[in-house]
Write a protein that binds this DNA or RNA. Sequence first.
RNA 1: GGUCCCAUCGUCUAAUGGUUAGGACAUCACCCUUUCACGGUGGCAAUAUGGGUUCGAGUCCCGUUGGGAUCACCA
Length: 402
Amino acid sequence: MLRIDDTDFARSKKEYEDAMRESLKWLGFNWCEEARQSARFARYDALRDELIAKGRIYACYDTPEELQIKRKRAMAKGEAPIYDRQALRYTEADLAKFKAEGRKPHYRFKLLPGIIEWNDIVRGHCQYEAEKLSDPIIIREDGSYLYHFPSCVDDSDFGITHIVRGEDHVTNTAAQIQMFEAIGGKVPTFAHLPLLTGVEGKLSKRLGSLGVRELKAEGVEAMAICSFLAKLGTSDAIEPFYSLDELADSLDFEKLGRSQPKFDEEELKHFNTKFVRSMPYAAVKDRVNVSEEFWNKVRPNLDLVSDIKIWADICHSEVTPIIEDKALTDLAADLLPPEPWNDETFNTWLNEVKAQSGKKGKELFHPIRKALTALDNGPELKTLLPLIGREKAQKRLKGIKA
RNA sequence: GGUCCCAUCGUCUAAUGGUUAGGACAUCACCCUUUCACGGUGGCAAUAUGGGUUCGAGUCCCGUUGGGAUCACCA
């Protein structure tokens, strides 16, 4: 299920949602159901009214400025900046005054005193004293909901069994557990994963340090990203997976560490190269315009899947040869045996070139490679030559564009 | 500042209180390839720090230092 948490009108833009969908789909995620919080306000309102009647949700008239001042004062005194619940002590006169001033209330969820505890799949037993937590604001002055309340209602209504999220949510969990209880829902099982850090410190989705779109544009494979990220911070080796299902099957909460792994984009790129070189034809056949045989022969030399085009062009289109040693390449052209070729053709031919030219090793291979491909490196010439074919090979060795 | 979490090779991590502290990635060396690349085999490399508990501590306890999260009318 994909759930769109779009209760904040100011921040919920269609383009953000579209970008997220696009990235999720590209990464290979599928969902068969969708829900949108902005379509469920009636449900939230009903529960809200119930909880207001029970005294678990209460109206507050503090302004953001007043709250800010209170927070600063508390911290300056070395106290925890917890909301002082002044709203619970309003007199009739106070309320009349707010009304006269035209102030509108926002609403908080009232935490019950006591220890809130849960058994976190990755953090183990967790506990917080409710008295040391602020009553969370759940409805803004403009009447719109903040994420806490709708999310608990939805998780409960949709029968969500496990909440797996970043550890930046641990404190929220304490308050949310009381919300689940207040609305009569079942408290889900929680797993709070350590947040990744960047090589030079924090990594934040809000800083835009990392974007799926950018990685995609740089040629990083979707499954390389998934394989890498899923195993980072676990005791499993990071290795290529070609399907999300297989990857998911290999995952195990037991293997998750509790300390923050570093995410290094360079490492991902490096892994991606390894990933591309190991990709089976089935994983790329829809995107590349080459045969399985061609893919398998050239793939160990690719950095990006799109580089396959470079080799397809070298074998099937025109190349302007680079002649480094004219005597040698002319000789090689003259000695090129007639087709059909077999496995021994290359060796026989090259040995003859070697014998007649007196050149060996790099001096022998490099000029031939440059003439045939115009590049410094690539798959073995023995592999490449049959793919290029006699006609093109001979012309290129003679310095003719072919 | 309050609350909470974390600390083992460069990186990700493994080790019922008893191992030469293991693996993977990176790096280096060698081998293979009559060339570059690919590949194969080896080497280097770590328990942040100070106390305790114990016959014995990476492992348990306390302190220190360092890192992170949270304390929004964001999610």
